[in-house]
Structures are given as C-alpha cells and as structure tokens.
Design a protein around this nucleic acid. Structure first.
Length: 467
RNA sequence: GGUCCUAUCGUCUAGUGGCCCAGGACGUGGCCCUCUCAAGGCUAAAACACGGGUUCGACUCCCGUUAGGACCGCCA
C-alpha cells in the first residue's frame, strides 16, 4: 500500500509556523516512503474562508518547496458527498435529527459551565421518534464503550465514550461540520497517515467512531507536539511573526526555515544541519519527540546565517535584488554584485541585513557618521591620503592583492601600522567605522568609486579648521 | 469544571537500565586571531521537576505529587 498523507489547512489566515511544520512532516513522510502528499483546503466555514487566505497558504507552501502531488481539493466543492454519507448514517440509525436551536445550545452550555458541569450536549433529541416540521441538524449517535487512539508518536490513548458528546455532523443549513468532513475526505482520499498537531487528539476518538460508522478502515495517527511561544503558550502573534511569508520578507532563506522546523520536535543524534535530501532520507516518527517545543528565533537566525554563507554568490545576488530595491537601489545587471556579496555574507544573518549593509556600495555619496569623521578624518591625515590617492590611481589592477601591496608600501615608508591608515580609509569609503575588510571591499567597490570617495574625504579634511 | 497530553542546561535536543559526577547546538561570558565589524578556533557557566517504588544498579521502567500545555461549538 502506498503512503498517502495530507495537509488540510483552513483558509482563514496566512500559513503560519505551526501549520508549516505540520505540512513539512507530512511532506517528509510521504517523500520518505515514495508516497503521495495531498493538499486539501478545509473551507466548510464559508463565512470565514477567503480567497486571499487560500492564495497565502499556497504561496507559503510553494516558497518552502512543499510541493503537493494531488489537489488542492476544496471541501466546499464536495458538500454533496458529505450530505450523501450523512444521510446514509441517518438511514442506518447511526445519527439522528436534532431540533435544538443554536441559541438554546449556547444557553445550556453556558449554564453548564457556570454550574461546573461538563458543557456537553445532553442527547435530548436522540429519543425523538417522529419527524418534526422544524429545522434540524444531524447528530452522530456516539455508542457506549471505550475508544482507543493508537498514535505512533504518543502511544495508545484511551477515551471513555461517555465523555464524548453526540456531535453535529450536518448543520441545520445542510452544511457539514469539520469532524465529519475530515473523516469522509480522509476515507475517500485513502489517506493512510493522518499527521497533524496534537491539539486534535481530543477529536480523534470522535473521528474513529465516525470511521467505524462509515465502515472504513482506520488510518495511522501521528499527533505532533505543539510549537509554543517564549512564554510556553501556544505560538501566536504576541510572540512575533508567525506567518511563514513574514520570514521571507525578513530575508530568511526557505531552507533555513525548513531545517529549523524539522529540528523542532524531530532529531537525528547531534546533527543540526540537514539538506533537504538528508531530511527525506532520515525522517522517521520514532525520532519525533512527544513534548511541545518553544520557537526560538535566534536559532533560526543562526541557521539562516549558516545557509547564507553556503549559498553561491550568484544565487544570492538574485535573492538580494528585491531587498536592495526596498532601499531604492536597482542592482539588476550590476556585475559587482557577487563580489559585493562575498564581502558581506560573513556578517549578514538575513538578506535584509545584507541589503542594509550593502548600501554604501551603491549610493552616489556616502553619508558620514559625525562620530566617525571626528575621530578619523583629521587634517593630520591629509598628506597620507594624498599619497594614497596617487598610488591607487596608478594601479592597473584594482584587486585585493594589488591594493594590499600599495597599502604596505605606504605603511613601510611612513612607519605606520595598518590600523592607522585603514580606519580613516574605511570612514572615507563607507562613512562609518564598520565594514568588510578594506582590500576586499575596495575591490568589490571598484576603482572609480573608491577614488571618488577618497578624494571627497580629502576635500572634507582640507575644509576642516586646522587644530 | 471535565477529558487528554507533556516533563534532561534559558531554548532545541542526545540518551531506550550500567558507556553519564549526563553529550551536542543556539544564546551568554572569557581568551586567541585581527584594519573595524563579523566569521573562525579554544574555553567557561548552565539541566535529569519532586516523592515513592522495581532493580545489584536508574535520566532511562511503574505509581503518585507538582507544574505547564491542549481541547471541550450547528469553528476548523
């Protein structure tokens, strides 16, 4: 039997971190076993589902590379199927008409909660024999007994059916409800492994009962532990960005997120870095932990930095373009870009950061940081800069090694240490005191721009009142 | 209130009865390297929630306590 897994988000918002991990584990397991990964949109709540959300989820999946083999299927297009199955159950007496109105139910639930009783449906319509001329919902008749969920992550979990209420499977407006749709879909789509968050554990016995009522074999269940925020409550906006696409906008590489998410709840010895292929080869539920985990943005950033350092400069060039554009820089076609990136990637944890520190390579004129100029662009350096401009102008090759040689000759003649020359030059070229190493930076910048800036700094120093 | 899940450094985790006075990674501190900032190398501090069993021997098995979390809709 071929493995079939599915990811079934409801389109009521963007793809969030937790959903992405669920999708990833489904995808990984399917790939690991040469199975199929199916995407199904659970949009039975017509009021809350939006087209934008569907697109946002698809975008998130595509960005992460979680490609699906079948779908996307939409539950809203399969209402007839659910109705058919629901009425079959009604014919068999496995469900019944419930004439209670939503208002009555809400009132009863609140009263029960207030009295400290379980807010369960009391089953009062279960014994109504005649068919009334009133709107009704269909409720599943939960049989007595015990239901055991065999979960390959959590182990066996037993539930007493008396604690499970007769759930509505078809609303009074004829639309089906979640638990019923899930079962009908997973059954008809031949899903072999239901992999989802462990917030669904309490739904599982209901679904098992529904499977049995439908006469269908059970899938294997795998309930993943939750992802928590720093305060150990369910991850939400309060904890920072939860949208997958927000991480794209922050300049994360998709594989960094994939690697991070995979390691959150799953492990393979002490290994931290995994290629996609390694993930596929090594993934197994035996190595998935049972306890929830706290989402740690710092570690994600570390991984991102790692992958930035490993990505070829040419590839990074393409990825960096939109981030530069945000600063008004159109760098497409700029041949210096790969070299520029090589100088920056050791010190950029995100693409956004990289773009931010690349600005001085592009802007017409550098913006002098007053503190930096006060400390380094001093009149006493005028002579030094004049010699430097002269030597550098004469260079036929503006490369790291040639520049280093030119600098060294000046240092030898003046008896100065590199730091004495490098810092003023750095300020002249970048406006500040922090930058990549000056030789690689100058090579990446190009001779023309470097000389323009050195000359400008020279003028700047000459304007200064002599101390 | 009920049902259910979980419990190793701040965080992610290794550990499947002796290899553990508990290993790795992120983060944090120190040192080295150094033209600044990084990167890199070395190094330090940092954990088996608690109490009972079982066993020659428990981080590992069982039971309880405590603490966290999730769920209890004609939402998904």
């Amino acid at each position: 039997m071929t493995v079939r897994t599915r990811f079934a988000p409801s389109p009521t918002g963007y793809l969030h971190i937790g959903g992405a991990r669920t999708a990833l584990f489904n995808w990984l397991f399917a790939r690991r076993h040469n199975g199929k990964f199916i995407l199904r949109i659970e949009d039975t709540d017509v009021a809350r589902s939006t087209k934008e959300s569907i697109q946002a989820i698809l975008d998130g999946m595509n960005w992460l590379g979680l490609t699906w083999d079948e779908g996307p299927f939409f539950q809203s297009e399969m209402f007839d199927t659910y109705r058919k199955f629901a009425h079959e159950l009604l014919d068999k007496g496995l469900c019944y008409r419930c004439y209670c109105t939503p208002e009555e139910l809400v009132a009863r639930r609140e009263a029960a909660l207030k009295d400290g009783r379980p807010p369960m449906y009391d089953g009062r319509c279960a014994s109504v024999k005649e068919t009334l001329d009133k709107p009704f919902a269909l409720r599943f008749r939960v049989p007595p007994g015990r239901t055991v969920v065999e979960d390959i992550i959590k182990g066996n979990i037993a539930f007493d059916n008396s604690a499970i209420e007769d759930l509505v499977i078809l609303r009074s407006d004829g639309t089906p409800t979640y638990n019923f749709c899930v079962v009908v879909d997973d059954a008809t789509m031949d899903i072999t492994h239901v992999i989802r968050g462990d917030d669904h554990i309490n739904n599982t016995p209901k679904q098992i009962l529904l499977y049995r009522a439908l006469g269908h074999a059970l899938p294997v269940f795998a309930h993943l532990p939750m992802i928590l925020g720093s305060d150990k409550t369910r991850l939400s906006k309060r904890h920072g960005a939860t949208s997958v696409m927000a991480y794209k906008e922050m300049g994360l590489l998709p594989h960094a997120l994939v690697n991070y998410l995979a390691r959150l709840g799953w492990s393979h010895g002490d290994q931290e870095i995994f290629s996609l292929q390694e993930l596929v080869d090594k993934f197994s539920f035996e190595a998935v932990g049972k306890s929830s985990g706290v989402f740690n943005p710092e570690k994600l950033t570390w991984l991102n930095h790692h992958y930035i350092k490993e990505t070829p400069a040419e590839e990074l060039s393409e990825l960096l373009l939109p981030f530069l554009k945000e600063h008004g820089i159109e760098a497409k076609g700029d041949e210096r870009l790969p070299k520029i990136i090589l100088t920056l990637r050791e010190r950029s944890r995100t693409l956004k950061e990289m773009a931010g520190s690349a600005l001085f390579y592009f802007n017409e004129r550098v913006e002098f940081d007053p503190k930096a100029t006060q400390k380094f662009l001093l009149p006493e350096n005028i002579g030094l800069f004049e010699v430097l401009v002269e030597r550098l102008s004469a260079l036929s090759e503006f490369t790291h090694d040639a520049l280093e040689a030119a600098f060294n000759s000046i240092l030898e003649e003046s008896g100065l240490k590199l730091g004495k020359l490098a810092q003023p030059v750095r300020v002249a070229l970048t406006g500040g005191t922090v930058s990549p190493g000056i030789f690689e930076m100058m090579e990446a910048m190009g001779k023309d721009l470097a000389l323009v800036r050195l000359k400008y700094a020279l003028e700047f120093m000459k304007q200064l009142p002599a101390s």
